[in-house]
Design a protein around this nucleic acid. Structure first.
Lengths: 201, 201
DNA sequence: CGGAAAGGTTGCGCCAGAACAAACTGGCCA
DNA sequence: TGGCCAGTTTGTTCTGGCGCAACCTTTCCG
């Protein structure tokens, strides 16, 4: 149980993995950097999500940075505690498969989208995903509970800051959504879904 | 234990998942189709690989087609047999986490590559991946043991048949690789790795 | 053997979107 | 209160690689 401040690293790419993490409050970005230095956001962590656990089972090397997107409260367990727990309650392992399997399926969807769709569709998908993960619905309007800079959205959807900025500006102009203070509010989620599925042109 | 012919479907996207599959001989393509009809190859299956198992743990809906790329020998177990086996030997579950975890890490790498790299780098990565998975090394030269059409390589690396064809033609011309009868032979794998990591220009 | 179908190659034009550039805004701190 | 920094917006330019189209090669099959 530990507080971290905005922009603090919870762990870094290449670190040895020896703890499992969960987010109690706040939000975290998981960012992978390639050997060419370019970065992509692998996923966003919202309260209740586990992170950093997979490498405990594979090669013990963390594949990405975890950066607090705002002041956050982190829980963590040691590797040995986790494996003792699994020994005692084997059904935990099946649940972990369930969780990781769902993430794999989602990541494969992202691969297909990145391979086949154009920028505005991918941005729309990114927003839908974040809304499903961390959206608070208040009388028909969904607000995403993760601070999102244009750059984050770009690195999450595989485009550039510039294109993301332009695209969001257009959607704001037509009233599909609003953004203030790094928080997105979606006014017409079905229109976003339509763009995601059929293309924005 | 069952033989399937080239282009036979082992299962189809949307099918109910109730068996776990493994490939004994041959090769299989896992192809996902989006709601827009566009396809991406999620992965290739080589002998020894498991496939179609993840949805047994999640939502029981197969997320993609499995198509035999050549005449193949398929093994399969029923869902109930698999779960009985896990009950009896809980360490199997941990091994499944290991396998799925490794696939998740690899899929996340692909996401970053698709998001940040250009077409020839992605094609190079695809070839490296296939060489690692199904490459037979005979005196310094690696042959990929999966029949690969240009279109397959394109749908696996997120580009078009045309770009894949041109790129491979260029690499063939400079002697990096050869392709005949839908089989790739890599003559200079370190040059491919260099393209993958630093960009082809 | 001949025709069809599947797969591959290649030339060309074009455009989505990346790269570059510059200015603007608001918040923070000295 | 003025300078600085992080983030954003927006205009312009440029290009990778996609879409299209035509043609070629090989394989398959009646």
């Amino acid at each position: 149980m530990e507080y971290v401040n905005k922009n603090d690293a919870i762990f870094a790419q290449g670190d040895n993995a020896n703890r499992a993490f969960a987010l109690a409050a706040g939000s975290v970005r998981i960012i992978q950097t390639g050997s060419d230095g370019k970065q992509a956001i692998i996923r966003f962590i919202a309260p209740g999500d586990l992170f950093g656990t997979v490498p405990l089972f594979t090669n013990n090397k963390l594949p990405a940075d975890a950066l607090a997107a705002e002041r956050s409260l982190i829980l963590s367990w040691s590797e040995t505690d986790l494996f003792e727990l699994i020994d005692r309650f084997p059904s935990i392992a099946v649940n972990i498969i369930r969780i990781i399997g769902a993430r794999l399926a989602e990541t494969q969807d992202r691969v297909r989208e990145l391979a086949t769709q154009c920028a505005d569709q991918r941005i729309a998908h990114a927003i839908l995903r974040l809304a499903a993960q961390a959206g608070h619905n208040v009388n028909g309007v969904t607000t995403i509970g993760i601070p999102l800079r244009r750059k984050d959205l770009a690195e999450f959807s595989g485009t550039t800051l510039h294109t993301a900025s332009r695209t969001l500006a257009a959607w704001e102009k037509t009233g599909l959504l609003m953004s203030q203070d790094q928080h997105l509010t979606i006014r017409d989620i079905s229109a976003i879904a339509r763009i995601a599925d059929k293309g924005g042109h």
